[in-house]
Nucleic acid binder design. Structure first.
Length: 407
RNA sequence: GCUGGAAUCGUCUAGUGGCAAUGACAAGAGACUGUAAAUCUCUCGCCUUCGGGCUUCGUAGGUUCGAGUCCUACUUCCAGCA
């Protein structure tokens, strides 16, 4: 079982701070997890990710299945080793991507789809997603879920029930694979400070483990169930109950697209999910309000492609709202993107310079912008964690959001 | 000097008698939430009460109901020959 220590609980009964102990190191929560879909955070090196304070990354099973193939990642020693991240890792199941493709056929077994790269036909099932994720070897896996994009209650209910059926199969397959990998021993707790596992230099491996099959990743891997139900809180409650009853290590909350109504939904879901297991809010974090509301109502980790995608497109976060660095008004602006920011971009470069890099399509433009945006969201969640611990969350939230959204 | 060719929106470019006139780039702005995203959308002669109005294809004339397109002259540029 994944070890999760709750270090403080907030007075509203939902928010908390904690530490998730993974085989590749600890995650102090709440935490923003960098989206490294294809085993890389676009435009950034893993060293840059470490330097900007990222604690963990999330890769995608669908993308890694298509390229370079999950067996190759296993051969390389797993996601952390392959990518040189050497820290805590998550994988998404592939459900979200597959159900975003144009030609998806849902079958009894799972979902049939075509590669967006070359049209190759694939079928993904709960079992194959688990197998792929075990080959990729992230510390935390997501159950294969059906994300419906409908506004219709009946459609959402059908998708939710399918997600629940698939969850049972995911759990069974996960435990089968855990046994094969020699990871069925109880987790013994966090490593000692200064150990290889704490430093993150190498994947942590247990000393007294039965010798695994050759080529099999030997570290513990954990499974999160994914709560669905869309915008319907009765379905959310049902889904949370179902997921809570399963033998999983934590929970993903999926199918959320906007902060509107998210507070009520999270109150419903997180009141049902067991407190002692971590919760990941899937895909949310492009808007600062997502992070505040998410943490306030009991989510421990977040991932989102928004910050880096917007960075590549020239949209940069500041405490006064987003700016488009490509706008002509920045041609002569020799101040940093955000003077209060401690990132490499803001400490060393001006808006005028960044504007120039973007207008001339220099690669560095995307690098520096990505460093800044990723640091911005990582920092917000770090501050949220601090403020929850010293009981200043409400004040921080109000001050931040007022300034961000009223400028 | 002679001969031939060419001049179209910031740039390059399509357009041989019936549309403010093609496409690309540049420029201006917007979008982006478990990344089919180094992507996508809009604007791009001037004015507009969004119906339309006005002025445009080197310059000046001409032919024609109608000219970026045909004719004449001029200007500039390019190539070749002197």
């Amino acid at each position: 079982m994944l070890k999760f220590d709750i270090t403080s609980e907030y007075k509203n009964g939902f928010a908390r701070t904690g530490i998730i102990h993974t085989p590749h190191g600890d995650i102090r929560t709440p935490a923003f997890v960098g989206a490294a879909t294809r085993a890389t955070v676009k435009a950034l090196t893993m060293q840059e990710m470490r330097d900007l304070g990222s604690q963990a990354i999330l890769a995608n099973t669908y993308h890694l299945l298509l390229a370079p193939g999950t067996d190759l990642i296993k051969e390389a020693g797993g996601l952390a080793e392959f990518s040189s991240w050497h820290g805590p890792t998550f994988t998404d199941s592939g459900g979200f991507q597959i159900f975003s493709l144009p030609d998806v056929k849902i079958t009894m077994n799972g979902a049939k789809f075509k590669s967006h790269i070359n049209g190759d036909k694939f079928e993904m099932t709960p079992e194959s997603s688990m197998q792929a994720q075990w080959a990729i070897g992230a510390d935390i896996h997501m159950a294969f879920d059906h994300l419906a994009k409908s506004e219709n209650h009946k459609d959402m209910e059908i998708a939710m029930r399918r997600t629940h059926d698939w969850l049972d199969r995911c759990v069974a397959e996960h435990h089968r694979l855990a046994k094969i990998h020699g990871c069925d021993m109880p987790f013994e707790g966090p490593p000692e400070r200064g150990s290889a596992r704490m430093s993150g230099a190498r994947p942590w491996r247990r000393a007294e483990r039965t010798q695994p099959e050759k080529g099999i990743l030997s570290h513990e891997q954990y499974l999160y169930a994914v709560v669905q139900g869309g915008t319907f809180n009765d379905l959310r409650a049902e889904s949370a109950k179902y997921c809570a009853s399963k033998d999983v290590d934590g929970f993903g909350i999926g199918g959320v697209f906007t902060a509107d109504g998210m507070d009520e939904m999270l109150k419903t879901v997180n009141a049902i999910l067991p407190k002692e297991k971590p919760r990941h809010l899937l895909g949310m974090g492009q808007e600062p309000i997502d992070l505040f509301v998410g943490a306030e109502f009991g989510c421990d980790t977040f991932d989102c492609v928004g910050p880096t995608r917007m960075a590549r497109n020239g949209s940069l976060y500041t405490n006064d709202g987003r700016i488009n660095i490509k706008n002509a008004k920045f041609i002569h602006d020799f101040s940093p993107v955000m003077p209060e920011c401690d990132c490499e971009c803001c400490k060393n470069y001006t808006k005028a310079y960044l504007h120039h890099l973007f207008k001339t399509d220099e690669i560095t433009a995307k690098v520096l912008a990505s460093i800044h945006n990723e640091r911005f969201v990582v920092h917000i969640v770090d501050e949220i964690r601090e403020s929850l611990q010293n009981d200043s969350f409400e004040n921080y939230k109000e001050t931040f959001l007022n300034r961000y959204y009223n400028n």
